[in-house]
Design a protein around this nucleic acid. Structure first.
Lengths: 243, 243
DNA sequence: ATCCTCAAAATTGTCCGACAATCGGCAAAG
DNA sequence: CTTTGCCGATTGTCGGACAATTTTGAGGAT
């Protein structure tokens, strides 16, 4: 009995996508390389231009190609932002609880702080000092303060120079933004406690004191949970994403 | 000099995508809901069916819709797998180093182990016991053993019941797979050390001893780094994804 | 009433051809 | 040397067409 291989019944546009994706993943199409025009692709693959266009939409959403100057398509690495917003969408749809998000943050942020302590540059220290000083000036402006808090953690992640942690961390910070905002608004002492934590972390970073950076970050994140709880929110409830 | 507002020049297919995406994110289209047919959508939005199809390809790749029974489109939550493979692709393209990946794993896996210690069920303990016993039988079959190692960590993540950590962890484990495989093959004692670690972790889980679960997991991950180094690979080099 | 069968209707996947809008480059004008 | 205007190339959108496949529904059997 001869056994037949399964026939690939996937629609043409998807097989086209797969073909181009592998071409990119194998490194035969490097980031920055220009893709042929739609008509060329249609010719090369022997399919209609509409089909090519559908395949391109898939590549586009994956972040593997993007328009250079709104014309020619070029191969690109998926941007951190694109990744983050995709993950954020998914987490929202899965209605993850505050406590799950918090646990993930508790795992990652201290690691980020520790990493940053090792590899932070003077420029980045200066940026953090600026951020802390701006924050001090915004103690009574929850909205702005909240923005600066996010920025603090973003600079830190950049300083740690670990793309993996950065990509994993960003969506969580994005999702926490509304929660941070609520806590800052409702708890008068929240801002000053946050500022104090940031200052302690910054001090540790300046002396490349990884242990203390981690320690204060841990306290900082833990504090946030207490603030959230104290402000009357349910730890096990889903995050809501009002604005 | 009056300043003009930017005109929204985004192509129609993208604005269509945005419209449907918001509809889903706002909860007006819930997962499981059937989307109108292409022709209907074209009618409702007053655009051509080709344009609708391009928008659908974007939704498809985002994981916001999928085909039920290979026909009608239904709204869906992006699957963990889809997310993971997207993140994996991105990490590969960014050529993340072993050490960055390892640091992220070192941050997350102990947290997973700790979480699992609190909420693991008898069924999951049984699954892990099965896994460990299978692993013991495969000590001399690196390929199979490697597979079981991956499975061990996957069950653990499931037991922890934290979707956020799970989504963040899976792509990293996927990327490590080739590295694990290489270490297992080249270092004769790697398999037995891994097995021992798994056994210790399992013992801790059975008594819901979160501290020990975390402790042994930390050792386990750390051990992996030493194994990788000892096998002669460069910690700071990019992961390669041969197969 | 419930179930089954099968043809009709609906839906998707693919193709074709067409055309307006826009971009990049190039040549002419200032 | 900068600005303007034009030309070709390329993308975005459209209309229609048709085969393949799924869904639907009517009619008949149990």
């Amino acid at each position: 009995m001869t056994s037949f291989a399964k026939i690939n019944t996937a629609p043409t546009y998807r097989r086209l996508y797969d073909a181009i994706e592998t071409e990119i993943m194998r490194g035969r199409l490097k980031p920055g390389a220009k893709l042929p025009t739609e008509t060329d692709l249609a010719g090369q693959f022997g399919v209609n231009r509409s089909t090519v266009r559908e395949a391109i939409r898939l590549l586009e959403q994956t972040g593997l190609v993007e328009r250079a100057s709104s014309r020619r398509l070029v191969v690109s690495k998926p941007s951190t932002d694109q990744l983050a917003s995709g993950i954020t969408r998914a987490l929202v749809m899965h209605q993850v609880s505050f406590s799950d998000l918090w646990a993930a943050m508790m795992a990652m942020e201290p690691a980020v702080a520790e990493g940053a302590a090792h590899s932070i540059t003077p420029d980045q220290i200066a940026a953090l000092e600026q951020n802390v000083s701006d924050s001090r000036a915004c103690l009574n402006n929850p909205k702005q303060f909240c923005e600066l808090d996010h920025q603090f953690h973003t600079i830190l992640a950049e300083a740690a120079g670990n793309r993996v942690l950065d990509i994993a961390r960003e969506p969580i910070n994005l999702l926490f933004h509304p929660a941070v905002s609520k806590v800052m608004t409702q708890l008068s002492q929240a801002s000053s406690r946050t500022l104090e934590a940031h200052e302690q972390i910054l001090t540790a970073l300046k002396t490349h004191d990884a242990m203390n950076a981690r320690h204060w970050m841990t306290k900082h994140i833990d504090d946030f949970r207490r603030g959230y709880e104290h402000a009357g929110f349910d730890l096990n409830g889903p995050i809501d994403i009002k604005r």
